[in-house]
Design a protein around this nucleic acid. Structure first.
Lengths: 322, 322
DNA sequence: TGTTGAATTTGTCCTGGACAATTGCGGAGA
DNA sequence: TCTCCGCAATTGTCCAGGACAAATTCAACA
């Protein structure tokens, strides 16, 4: 297993231990204006200056800021967490997700995944996942295997124990397997017709793929729009493609208030007969919007689909298989 | 609530709409600092102010700024193009891409594609492409069918004749077909081993998929890193995955000087035995960097592969495990 | 117990200026 | 005539410090 070097995290090996504010911006997802404001208000982050007077930050502060961002996403307030040291942040972050994820049976598998990933053995990684898929079936595969693996890899990235490209490799392999499975189980005339996308700031589509798999497996027909579709475009697509349900995925990086704002906006523009289903880590602590169904867990998809079908079986001849 | 222009680009629904600078930023890809600087230096864009004194821009200026950005990407200078009116910008933009795309035999097919897309008939669209794929074969499919379709759809988007979600639909369908084909033709022990990705600002992966198809078809083994991999990470991945060739795709939105800078940076950090292949519209007018091979056309991939193989036929497929 | 209104927090936007890096250009030299 | 070099103009990024609306907290009150 790869370990961070004692001198520092392998975030910018070639650049050394200091990053300019532009890099901090892209590494943490925070605006430079927010970063500067925090400095003036809370005294953190604490940059040195280069010879031009520009701020340069030690890489350790990148890790802190990423943790802070996660905590904010979970509903904490900047005044309470910005400026805490790494240990305190990690302690808070640990409270965030109760350690229920590490089921004992999955422990061994996850370890194998991390091993293969750190050895960059792609063939092995691919085999591991495909074997698992056929062993436990698509639904369990998505709801447990993939979920837990993503959490582990995300955690490792946050702490700097795996590199960006390793996370990319992982994502590509798992995505590929999921897409493959989705194509296999998709039923072109299925119902409801579900439109899947992410809001404009969200670039990660793994959550969509997982939802897509679970939805298609239970008879829905999914239309993917990829990532980053503005609300107005979703509305237009719903109309054009005769959509029954809009499915959206919010990652944990998403600020809760943005989630709520987007959902309220979208929901108010859609016809009442069209449902909005929101899922992903970013949704857990978001304030509820009327007319939106929130999913805390992929398990709920099957139930929601059954409920939807029982609500809509009147006007149609239902070839339901129960 | 602040609802009128909160999210999305109301290009189609509301004609007299105004967007705040934050929306302009995400719509055009320009920094708000650049937008303000242009205003003070060239008198464009020309915002009104809302009741708080914040800038609000008419949607027409969004179109202008997108065109300007494209022109800058092609090497023009802000002082020459910022502030020109829409007609002048379109005229310059027209000069950019000579209308060679409309090959006569493909005309009929392209028309069918645009038809199906505007009717949102996804099943038909999917059928059209799959039929075409089996009729002409993967290589021709990628090099002609997909290339021309992308050009048509991109053009239609720029002129506002199709909506964003329609472009997303098109992209998803074509991507899916390509990925499907790639899996089928991939040879796990193929050579050279090619790492595919895009630079950090580039989010479009269609170019990568097309290259991947062509590469895999001719015996290479491709490892995809998805989009937006920093140079340092590519270097690490090359080492970790025993890569022979790094393939990069630059879209036309990419400023030429950034392309050159990225390639120079990357090339200087890689071992001399590792080749860098760069393709995509953004590469056409970029200044050449030593050690980088530029691809103007997907046809060249086959030739480049043959050349690479003839250069490396001595130590053929030696597995070097650590 | 629930609600309302004031106080505080916080992100976004503003102005106006400094400066390094890049680009373009004109002149000197081959 | 062509190439190279240095100077001047251009241009993106960064800074400081302030204003303010929206969101949130909290205390007082019904």
């Amino acid at each position: 297993m790869a370990d961070p070097v004692s001198s520092g995290l392998p975030l910018h090996p070639a650049q050394g231990a200091w990053v300019p504010i532009s890099a901090l911006e892209s590494e943490t997802g925070l605006t430079r204006e927010v970063i500067r404001k925090w400095e003036s208000r809370y005294g953190f982050p604490q940059p040195k200056r280069d010879k031009n007077g520009d701020r340069i930050y030690p890489v350790e502060q990148v890790v802190c800021l990423r943790l802070i961002r996660r905590l904010l996403g979970a509903g904490m307030r900047p005044g309470k967490v910005v400026g805490l040291d790494l240990a305190a942040l990690e302690q808070l972050s640990g409270q965030l997700l109760p350690p229920e994820a590490t089921a004992t049976s999955a422990e061994h598998f996850s370890q194998q995944v991390l091993d293969a990933l750190s050895r960059h053995d792609l063939i092995r990684l691919d085999c591991l996942f495909r074997q698992r898929l056929f062993r436990v079936g698509l639904s369990l595969f998505v709801r447990e295997t993939v979920s837990i693996s993503i959490a582990l890899v995300g955690e490792a990235w946050l702490r700097g124990t795996i590199r960006v490209f390793e996370e990319h490799l992982f994502t590509e392999i798992v995505s590929s397997i999921l897409r493959d499975a989705i194509r296999t189980v998709t039923e072109p005339s299925g119902s409801p017709r579900v439109l899947l996308s992410t809001p404009p700031e969200e670039i990660h589509t793994m959550g969509l793929l997982m939802a897509n798999a679970e939805l298609s497996l239970h008879g829905a027909y999914c239309i993917g729009l990829g990532a980053q579709t503005p609300a107005t475009e979703i509305v237009a697509a719903v109309d054009a493609c005769h959509i029954d349900v809009v499915g959206l995925s919010f990652s944990i990086a998403h600020p809760v208030r943005d989630v709520a704002r987007f959902l309220r906006d979208l929901s108010s523009r859609l016809a009442p007969s069209v449902e909005v289903w929101a899922g992903g880590q970013g949704v857990l602590r978001s304030p509820r919007i009327a007319g939106v169904r929130y999913f805390h867990d992929l398990d709920e998809i099957e139930l929601a689909l059954a409920a939807w079908k029982s609500r809509h079986d009147g006007p149609r001849s239902e070839p339901e298989l129960d």
